[in-house]
Amino acid sequence: MSFSKSRRKLAVAIILLLIAVVMLTFSILNPSQKTGMFRKLVLESIAPLESVINTTSSRIGGVWGRYIFLVNLGEANRELVGENAFLSQKINDYREIYLECLRLRRLVGLQGKINYPTVAARVVGRKQSPLFETILINKGNSEGITVDLPVQTVNGVLGRIIEVSWNVSKVLLLVDYNSNIDTLIQRSRAHGILQGSGEKGCKLKYVRRTEDVNVGDVVVTSGLAGVFPKGLVLGTVESVEKEETGLFQEIRVSPAADVTRIEEVLVILREEENQE
């Protein structure tokens, strides 16, 4: 009796392992599958929680830095420091609002320059694993966002949407190893594929040895793969190496968008999405 019970328990565990292997195989064979209901629910739940925890912790950090360490000073001094901390916080709040206004003004300016409809969004979650360069933004299906839409900052392309739930989307940054973007060197029109290299930025692959590429050249989207419109700035060439053998050059590209300091982004809606 107990033998059959333990076998049943083992069978449950093995079935779970098989399901896991099938899930992984399916996701490898179908890389551009739609966001499933479970993933949507998790995205919807994590975004507000992360946002609240991040805001609270940064406020606590601010109070700790300004106030707690001064607890042993005299009463009068304490009052003054408290008042000072309060005022500093106020100034800091106003400065934050002022800077946000400036950023939004630049973003609105950019919105006018792009010939596509766009949606402005705020970053609510940063990368959740050191291996994957992704962020969460606070706009989703309800704003017309779909998978594979380009995401832009004031300085240049940031990445593309890879998962969408109702009010949250996940953006794959162009520095992620999974990111591949069809590109052109703006000056010489040399063609290549920009692949993410994590913290090191990006590398431009498949540019032939004979092509004219210099340090400082601007890299733009080619518009060929159908995800990014043509001519969006991706970055600048940081280094060019031509080995004695080999068909292609080794080119490092520094992204135009600062992927470590993003607060607001623009999602570019393609025309067909807009018509839908």
Partner: peptide, 11 residues
Amino acid sequence: MASMVPGIFVV
């Protein structure tokens, strides 16, 4: 939450 390849952390 975090993975780019669904199923990898389950396995």
